[in-house]
Simulated assay, not measured.
Amino acid sequence: MNQSARPYRSVLYVPASNARAMAKVRTLPIDAIIFDLEDAVAPDQKVAARATLAEALAEGGYGNRQRIVRINDLSTVWGIEDAKAVAALECDAVLLPKVESAEQVQALAEITGDRPIWAMMETPLGMLNAAEIAAHPMLRGMVMGTNDLAKELQSRFRPDRLPMQAGLGLCLLAAKAHGVTIVDGVYNAFKDNEGLTAECEQGRDMGFDGKTLIHPAQVEIANAAFAPDAAEIDLARRQIAAFEEAEAAGTGVAVVDGKIVENLHVVTAKQILAKADAIAELTA
C-alpha cells in the first residue's frame, strides 16, 4: 500500500483495559485503532491494562488496521512505564497526550526508539507550537483533542465549531507543511448521525484525513465522509486524461466541465485516485 495514501477515515478509541472491546474491533471496518491507556482507563486499572493490551496485540488479528497506543503523559506515574512497554508491543505507533513542544516528542523518542510517534493536540500552547511539533523527525501523525481544547479555551459548543477554528487551522497548517497525518477530534453525541455527518464533512473540507470516533456506530458515516465518492473519482480520471491529451497535442491547456485543468489539479486528482486505491486495498 502507498503509505502516503494510507486511509485514516475512521480512527476508533478502545479502552486498553477492555479485552472484549479490543476483540470486537478486529471485526469493524475501521482504518485505525487507538488503544487507550490514558483517559479510558481508571487509575487503579492502568498497570493491569498494559498486560491486557500486550496480550491482545500479541494475539493479533487486526489486519491492515493501524494499531496506535495512547500512553499516559510522561509526567504521570504511569507514563514512563507505558512508553517502555510500547517499545516492545506489536503496534504501529505511540500516541502522546497533551503535546506542547518538540521536546516532549523527543523525550518519548528517547524511550521508544524507532517507533513512530503521534501527538495529541489539545491545549492552547500545543496549538501555538504545532509547527515545531510537526517538524520532529519521529512524528507521523496528529490527533485533535477537541474536548480538552474546548475546556482550556472555555469555549461554548457550536455546530460550526467557530471557537475551534484558530486551533484546528494552526494544526492543519503544521501537519500539511510537514507531511504529517492529521485526524479530527471526536463527536460526543454518538447517536446524532446528522450532527456527526455535518462535522465529518466540515473536517473533510478543511483538509483532515479522518475522524477519531468513540463508538462503532460512528464508523460508517466517517468512512463515507472521508473517502472519495464516485463523482470525485470520475472527475479525477477525466482531468488526468484531458491534461495528458493536451500535453501530447502541445496545446498546454486542458478543459474539463468548462474549467481549466492545470498541473496542480492533476496532482490533486492523482492523490484522490491513490486514496481510492488504498481504501479498496484496505477493505478487500
Rank of each mutant, 00 (worst) to 15 (best):
V261G: 01
Q239C: 13
L89T: 12
F208L: 07
E81T: 11
P228E: 00
A32K: 06
Q218I: 02
G207P: 04
G250Y: 01
E110M: 10
A134P: 08
R238F: 03
R65N: 07
L53T: 11
Y62D: 05
S75I: 04
A274S: 15
I279A: 03
V256C: 04
M142Q: 01
R140G: 08
K211W: 07
T212C: 13
P29F: 10
L28Y: 13
L37A: 06
D73F: 01
E122D: 08
S101H: 15
Q165P: 01
T112P: 05
L196V: 08
V105W: 05
D229V: 01
W78A: 02
A109F: 03
N72R: 06
V41A: 10
E81P: 00
Q202Y: 08
D44T: 14
P137T: 10
A254K: 08
M144N: 03
P43D: 09
I133M: 06
D114Q: 13
L53F: 10
G185Y: 12
V14G: 00
A249I: 10
I111L: 15
A254P: 02
I279Y: 00
F157D: 15
K24R: 15
K46T: 00
L53R: 11
A174D: 01
V256Q: 05
L128K: 11
V86E: 09
V94S: 04
E199F: 07
